[in-house]
Amino acid sequence: MAPVLAGLVDDAGLFPPTALPMDAALARHRRDLAAAHPMLTHRFLCPASRWDELAGRLRPGEERLRVGVILDGVLPPLESDRHVVELVEVPLGMGGRAAVAAVLQRTADVPVPVFVEPVRGPDQVAAIGQIAEWRERDAAAPRGAKVRCGGLRAGAFPAGTELAAFVTACAGLGVPFKATAGLHRALPYVDAATGFRHHGFLNLVLATARAVQGEGPEEVAKCFAEGADVPAALAALPADVAERTRALLVSYGSCSTDEPVEQVARYGLAKGAL
């Protein structure tokens, strides 16, 4: 697996639409750990509100669970003999720049990377600027942004132009980001059951690659409309661009861990293809 796709997918099996029960999500995660596919981060995403439910199921003597915490409650201990929290994600819900500032202040003492999700709208790019300013002030506590690419209603899916504005702002300000929701397949498609148009995760990777090469929002937005040419464009990325791309796009959460692997193989980007 090429660096541009390696370690791209976090395990979000607890979240919709899959929303596995805790036991089933952990069983699947353990199977993935055993298979060790390089496209997966092998990091388990868990809401803080369900931490006790998770902690009670961790087995003594097994490899420590690598966790990403979604901060919807009290932050759990960052480390024990059974787990290690590698990053924290903060969904904001409602609020603008003041909410971002409050989150950054509230998590100031958290020593692991914290990814703050700005509220969609006119303040989103300004919020990324706030995160960039925080990074400059305190390099020991890395902070990043988070973008939501879909959800359970049509309005949760941002337009390509909106995603392009987010990605280019992160690239221009040097703010790494994570993505979540809606990225079920490699390329854009319309879900037959809901009628929602989903973005492709390969399109997001390509958009990030274009942004780190200095392209502006209008050109980057075109990546979200592209289809069949995206795999070939990713295959042609120079090694240094691929490295910078993944330094900016840290990973995305997927409720399925099989589908991204199958999609990459389908489009000829599996082992040895790049």
Rank of each mutant, 00 (worst) to 15 (best):
V230F: 03
A242N: 00
A99E: 10
S254K: 00
A102H: 13
E243F: 00
K146I: 10
H29K: 00
G151S: 14
W134K: 09
G272L: 07
R266M: 13
R30T: 10
V110E: 02
D109Y: 11
D23M: 07
E89G: 07
S256P: 13
T257N: 07
F166N: 05
R266T: 12
V264Q: 02
V175W: 02
A233H: 00
A126M: 00
D240T: 02
L269D: 08
V250G: 00
P158R: 10
C255D: 04
V261M: 05
A164S: 11
L87S: 15
R66K: 14
N203D: 10
T41R: 14
A145Q: 10
V250R: 12
L152H: 13
F157V: 15
A126P: 00
G200S: 02
A179V: 03
F196S: 07
A211F: 00
A35I: 06
V264T: 05
A139C: 12
P231W: 05
G96H: 07
M39I: 12
P113D: 12
V241A: 06
L71K: 06
C255K: 04
R143C: 13
L269G: 09
A164L: 06
V67S: 14
H29D: 02
E136K: 15
M1A: 10
D81F: 02
A232R: 06
P17Q: 10
A228D: 13
A235I: 00
T180F: 01
G96L: 08
A126S: 11
T107G: 04
S80Y: 01
E117G: 12
D81W: 01
A186M: 09
G121P: 13
L65Y: 12
D52W: 13
A207V: 04
A171Y: 06
D32M: 01
R153Y: 12
I70H: 06
R120H: 08
A270H: 13
R185W: 02
L40C: 01
P238Q: 01
R59F: 04
P158Y: 09
A108C: 07
V125W: 10
G227P: 03
L183N: 13
V212H: 04
A211T: 00
P38R: 11
A179S: 15
G227S: 11
T161N: 10
A270W: 08
L269V: 02
L269F: 06
P60S: 15
V69D: 15
G144I: 10
L14C: 06
D138M: 14
A171G: 12
S256V: 08
L14E: 03
G172K: 13
V9K: 00
P188V: 03
Q213N: 01
A179I: 05
L173Q: 14
P47A: 03
T180E: 05
A171W: 06
A169R: 03
L75M: 07
L104S: 13
L104H: 11
E53G: 03
A156C: 15
R43Q: 10
V241E: 04
A154P: 10
K271F: 00
Q105Y: 04
S251P: 03
A27R: 14
M39H: 15
G144T: 11
H29G: 00
L58R: 01
Q105F: 04
L183I: 09
G96P: 09
